[in-house]
Amino acid sequence: MTTLALALTLTGCSGAADPEPRDTRAPTVPTGVTATAGSSGTVHVMWSAATDDRAVTGYAVYREGRKVKDLPAATLMTDIVGLAPETRHRFTVRAHDAAGNVSPPSAAVAATTLRAVTEDRTPPTAPSALRATPDGGRAVTLRWSPARDDTRVTAYDVYQADTRIHTVPGTATTAHVSGLRPGTAYAFTVRARDAADNSSRDSAPADLTTAPSPGAPPNTAPTGLAVTAAKGEITVTWTPPDAGAPVTHHELHLNGRFATTIIWGTTPPPGRATYTFPVQDPPGTRYTVTLRARLPDGTWGDFSAPRTVAVR
């Protein structure tokens, strides 16, 4: 009897762990919400990230209390389009988590769409003198000289790797971009936009490598990347990283996908390297080009700052 009682006791102690408590806590309210009219039919809404005891999984944007956008947790800005000209709107943002808990709405912000300018087909000039100043390892401040327009510039759009990531009013000549990764090479460009949604050409790019995390190795990206297009071909030039030994292999990526490996054997060219490859896409097709080098230890280094080019 004693042995049986002991066995029963041990069996009872080896049961499954208690289930994880149900998540009932909502995320915090998103802060820093702004709304900027970029044209007669669009408003750009931005906010700062909310927090949660587990994880924020997404955001919802509301106009006049009605939900108009659902966005993933990594997205902290969006354009609300299809609005009527010269109309005032109020926007709020709410965060939610995986358990379906939803934060209270943010403070409401208002923006009035601009007057329609249907006959305006002239884009602004490109912003000039773009420069990037790092703000720690995860943010950057961009500054530029203003563009000109035959009516007026209503917004500046910031692009990274040919993707718009930020918008500021046309009266601004600075932008603060956060959410970057430490020890990473970036290239930013800025376009000016007017009330008719005419956009300028890209500014000249501004490159920046964010500060690495404490104890991380130095960045090993190729530098000085330049990309030019001629009829039926694209030419890439760059300076290989200083890796302590000749760099014989580079990977070329187009639009974030591996395209080819550039190999020179044991004697790569001194100084800047050049590579030309054919393209058969229609004129106007845009490519974002990045490179990384194979280091002497056989590993692949960091990616270069990107460059975007249009096929001719």
Rank of each mutant, 00 (worst) to 15 (best):
M1Y: 08
T3R: 14
A7V: 14
A16M: 11
A17R: 11
P19Q: 05
R22L: 14
D23S: 04
P27G: 02
P27V: 06
T28N: 03
T28R: 02
T28Q: 04
T31Y: 03
G32A: 08
V33Y: 08
V33M: 10
T36A: 08
G38S: 13
S39D: 13
S39T: 14
V43G: 06
V43N: 03
V43T: 05
V45S: 05
M46L: 07
W47A: 06
A49K: 14
A50V: 07
R54G: 00
R54Q: 06
T57V: 13
A60R: 15
Y62K: 13
K67T: 09
V68N: 05
P72D: 09
A74Q: 12
D79F: 15
D79C: 06
V81M: 03
G82L: 11
P85R: 13
R88C: 00
T92F: 01
R94W: 00
R94A: 10
A95V: 03
A98S: 11
G100V: 09
N101L: 07
A108F: 05
A108S: 15
A110N: 14
A110D: 12
A111V: 10
T112P: 02
L114R: 15
R115S: 11
V117D: 13
T118V: 14
A132P: 07
P134Y: 10
D135V: 15
G136S: 02
R138N: 08
L142N: 00
T151R: 14
T151W: 12
R152K: 12
V153Y: 13
A155I: 11
Q160S: 15
Q160F: 08
V168F: 05
G170H: 02
G170E: 01
G170N: 03
G170A: 03
T173V: 12
T174C: 09
A175Q: 11
V177T: 10
L180D: 05
T184I: 07
A185V: 07
A185Y: 05
A187Q: 09
F188M: 04
F188C: 05
F188P: 02
V190L: 06
A192P: 09
A195D: 01
A196H: 02
S199P: 09
R201M: 05
S203T: 04
A204E: 10
L208Y: 05
L208P: 00
T210M: 03
G215T: 13
P218F: 10
T220C: 01
P222E: 07
G224A: 14
L225R: 11
T228L: 08
A230P: 00
A230K: 10
I234N: 00
V236S: 00
T237D: 12
P240S: 11
D242M: 04
A243V: 00
A243I: 00
A243T: 01
A245E: 02
P246G: 04
H250P: 07
L254R: 15
N255I: 11
R257F: 03
A259Y: 15
T261Y: 06
W264C: 00
P269V: 04
G271H: 04
T274V: 15
T274L: 09
P278M: 10
V279I: 14
P283C: 10
T285W: 12
Y287R: 15
T288V: 12
T290P: 08
G301L: 03
R307C: 01
R312V: 12
